[in-house]
Design a protein around this nucleic acid. Structure first.
Length: 271
DNA sequence: GAGCCTGTTCGGGC
DNA sequence: GGCCCGAACAGGCT
């Protein structure tokens, strides 16, 4: 599921428990989600703390607790967050289950590519790793000039692979990258340097990155509904899809190590 | 049963 | 060192 809008949606699911005190943590301590932060540490740290804030940055989630405690969470490929009123019977892949007196907060992840991070900061500070994140797509620091410089540093890589690099495009994942390139009319195999040096391709890429991010957050981020059929999104998953712009078949192939979908008549190298 | 997968990290080769 | 690629992680689904 999780690219930036899906991540946002899942994070907001824990909001009903804001202001509530954690009573207990149940874990499956041997699962890989604890590879950076052992379950024991969380079992000691979390009970007795109040959940005070919920936010996301790209694919990263941050939950703030009383006494400057911060729980970072990444959903990996198959992670999801759930929140239920009691009573709740734990499911097989619920590796992390927090209980307050009213709610059960769950991090479930059957493939276990997700992870947890616990950090206590100085008063009034965000944790170090959070402060070090690159500017989010919709923040001021995400500029056309920064994108151009980044594309030129990765000049030989296909633009599709470069869009997936979280250090410049936090939160962009496989389907968003395809959607952005399709709207910008850029072929996914175009070398990034070539996009960077073409003023109008760079502008289109920058513009569509902002647009797809904004729209995805509004549509998927609010209630997990699908974008309209005018998006590539609905057509890219299976072989045999038709491009909403040209009415011709879409192509699916591996680019930059990931399954990529594009519309050959619509997305060109040139320009 | 085989192959696929909305993500990231690590190690090896150049 | 920088960059690039492939493999690995794990389990459900087609």
């Amino acid at each position: 599921m999780p690219e930036l809008a899906e991540v946002y949606f899942h994070a907001m699911r824990w909001k009903p428990a804001l202001g509530e005190c954690i009573q207990s943590l149940e874990s499956h301590p041997a699962t890989r989600i604890y590879r950076e932060t052992p379950a024991k540490m969380l079992e000691t740290a979390l009970p007795g703390r109040v959940l005070e804030s919920v936010q996301t940055h790209g694919k990263q989630m941050l939950f703030g607790f009383s006494r400057n405690g911060w729980l970072g969470l990444h959903l990996g490929m198959t992670g999801e967050l759930k929140c239920f009123p009691e009573p709740y019977a734990r499911d097989k892949h619920d590796h992390f289950v927090l209980r307050t007196d009213k709610h059960v907060l769950i991090f479930s992840d059957y493939r276990q590519f997700g992870r947890l991070l616990w950090e206590e900061s100085s008063e009034g500070e965000f944790p170090r790793w959070w402060r070090d994140l690159p500017p989010a797509v919709l923040e001021k620091g995400f500029t056309r000039a920064a994108v151009k410089a980044f594309l030129q540093r990765r000049a030989k890589s296909p633009i599709k692979a470069v869009l997936l690099m979280q250090e410049q495009f936090p939160g962009i994942g496989n389907w968003m990258a395809d959607e952005i390139l399709w709207r910008a009319r850029i072929h996914p195999e175009t070398p990034a340097g070539r996009v960077g040096e073409s003023g109008h391709k760079l502008s289109a890429l920058f513009r569509e990155t902002l647009w797809v991010t904004e729209q995805a957050l509004q549509i998927i981020g609010s209630d997990y509904s699908d974008p309209p059929a005018s998006w590539l999104f609905l057509h890219r998953w299976r072989d045999g899809g038709i491009c909403p712009r040209t009415g011709k078949p879409l192509v699916r192939a591996e680019v930059g190590g990931r399954t990529t979908c594009w519309s050959p008549q619509w997305q060109k190298w040139g320009g």
